[in-house]
Design a protein around this nucleic acid. Structure first.
Lengths: 93, 93
DNA sequence: TCTACAGTTCTAAATCTATAGAACTGATTT
DNA sequence: AAATCAGTTCTATAGATTTAGAACTGTAGA
């Protein structure tokens, strides 16, 4: 087969991350607007607690779909476009 | 935005369907070999009860990712390639 | 230094999901 | 008709997931 086990593991994580409405929204937000930080993302979602948002962002970054860069006390998030194209180009459409 | 609510709903269902190891395996199996029927799929997975397999196939078909065609007492399954290309081309790689 | 802000971790509760056994429907074969 | 095979539905259970409050860490600013 063309696919190996590591890929399968990453794919499951990534699709599981996207298979939840709030996280899919976050991914779509970040695909549209780069470099949003934690608070900015939270403001674009209606009523999500900080602890919940943190949990969702962790799953998305753990899957490899989004990258984070720390700048001072802010963390900026971006979609990893190479990964998105391979696994979920719908995000970039 | 380019994405509408219906698309979001379908996308969540589809990614949720793929975000589980057994279902991802099924999708990869079907991407590689077309027209497998229920029992043939079950045989390619190690130890999955029929009721469980039925449940998984329902989720995959409900998401639109796989199609089913009844032929006598058999049901044959196939990946919907148009949907796969848009949402998860990784399956076809 | 003290306060405020950005984000994380801990803990707990409610909900959801995966799983399979048993009983079922409907088509096929003998 | 009776038995068999393909697949579904019902029911129950163990485990995972989502959610948020509270307490926390680290950075920035007054």
């Amino acid at each position: 087969m063309g696919e190996n086990q590591e890929d399968m593991g990453q794919a499951v994580k990534l699709y599981k991350a996207l298979g939840e409405p709030t996280r899919l929204k976050i991914a779509l937000l970040l695909a549209k607007e780069s470099n949003l930080c934690f608070t900015a993302i939270g403001e674009k979602l209606e009523s999500v607690a900080g602890s919940t948002l943190s949990h969702h962002l962790k799953q998305l970054t753990d899957s490899g779909l989004i990258d984070s860069r720390k700048n001072g006390s802010y963390i900026h998030y971006n979609v990893n476009r190479e990964i998105a194209e391979k696994f979920a180009p719908y995000l970039l459409a």
